[in-house]
């Protein structure tokens, strides 16, 4: 069992938790992920490591409430326990040897982009962070990003904060203004990563993306997380989750990610109703 040390609501649909998992904390690096199971009937879901504290032995996860499992997870509180928590899995994000990198984060993807930006910053790299959200109410990790970024550009779909537009608009502006990036690291919704890659391809800037496909074991056994990269089948759990974005078949990945959409929707509604009824009876 893995204890929840801290819980913080970052916005109405995104929650941060610090989990007591000393062995995972000892090894975790930005870009890696964990797999958790809330309870005995639960499914295994992968979540990318948002931060870690080797001394305190804690691992931070940040998740958006999108389905039954994240809904259940969000109903747990500090000092409650999670049944299973295993990691760190996957290959850490490559952050060495860069002079200037643009880190592009979209929505809850910023939770994963942040530790990468931090590590780059700490290694002496100039970091330009471009973050995008639907609106100002969904913002997360603003102070954290600012602290590790030499430039911090904010985009919202509705213009309620920063500039109105997409992260690709901001990135294009930066590139057009003469910024020379060794690499772009894009982490967010698949569609966002696809379009960031389309843009950077035009300028021939190497772009790494963090893929988050459906997984079960996460250790190289089930093959459910496979995707096509440069025409070859790769497994996100052991070969990734970071891949060269110019080689990733995003359209296939988008299709595969919605394989269980109907089941997930139904199960989510059931879970929400269950919690509502419980609250009513209390």
């Amino acid at each position: 069992m893995y204890k929840i040390i801290k819980k913080k609501e970052l916005n109405p649909t995104v929650t941060l938790m610090e989990i007591d998992a000393p062995l995972v904390a000892k090894k975790a690096e930005p870009g890696q992920f964990i797999i958790l199971r809330v309870d005995d009937e639960g499914e295994r879901i992968p979540l990318t490591v948002a931060d870690f504290d080797r001394e305190a032995g804690t691992v931070t996860i940040i998740f958006q409430i999108v389905g039954s499992t994240t809904e259940k997870l969000n109903h747990l509180n500090e000092s409650d326990e999670i049944k299973d928590f295993v990691g760190p899995l996957g290959v850490p994000t490559h952050t060495e040897g860069f002079k200037k990198v643009a880190v592009v984060g979209g929505g809850v993807g910023c939770a994963i982009a942040y530790p990468v930006a931090k590590k780059l910053h700490n290694s002496g790299c100039e970091v330009h962070s471009v973050v995008g959200f639907r609106n100002k109410d969904l913002f997360i990790l603003e102070d954290e990003f600012k602290a590790v970024s030499d430039k911090y550009v904010v985009m919202t779909d509705d213009g309620s904060k920063g500039e109105k537009g997409l992260v690709t608009d901001a990135l294009k502006k930066l590139i057009e203004s003469g910024e020379k990036y060794d690499e772009v690291i894009a982490i967010g919704p698949l569609v966002m990563m696809k379009f960031v890659c389309r843009l950077t391809k035009e300028y021939d800037i190497k772009t790494m993306v963090s893929m988050n496909p459906i997984m079960i074991d996460g250790t190289g056994m089930c093959g459910g997380c496979r995707l096509t990269v440069g025409g070859e089948t790769k497994f996100a759990c052991v070969d990734g989750p970071d891949f060269d974005g110019h080689l990733v078949d995003f359209d296939e990945a988008i299709e595969r990610s919605n394989m269980y959409k109907d089941f997930e929707r139904q199960r989510y509604d059931e879970t929400c109703n269950l919690f509502k009824n419980m609250e009513r009876s209390v």
Partner: peptide, 20 residues
């Protein structure tokens, strides 16, 4: 890791490895 045949369509929805 599961082996696949490397034929077209193996990443369609509804294709599983036996392991999965």
């Amino acid at each position: 890791l599961p082996r696949f045949m490397r034929i077209p369509g193996e990443n369609l929805k509804g294709v599983y490895s036996a392991n999965e």
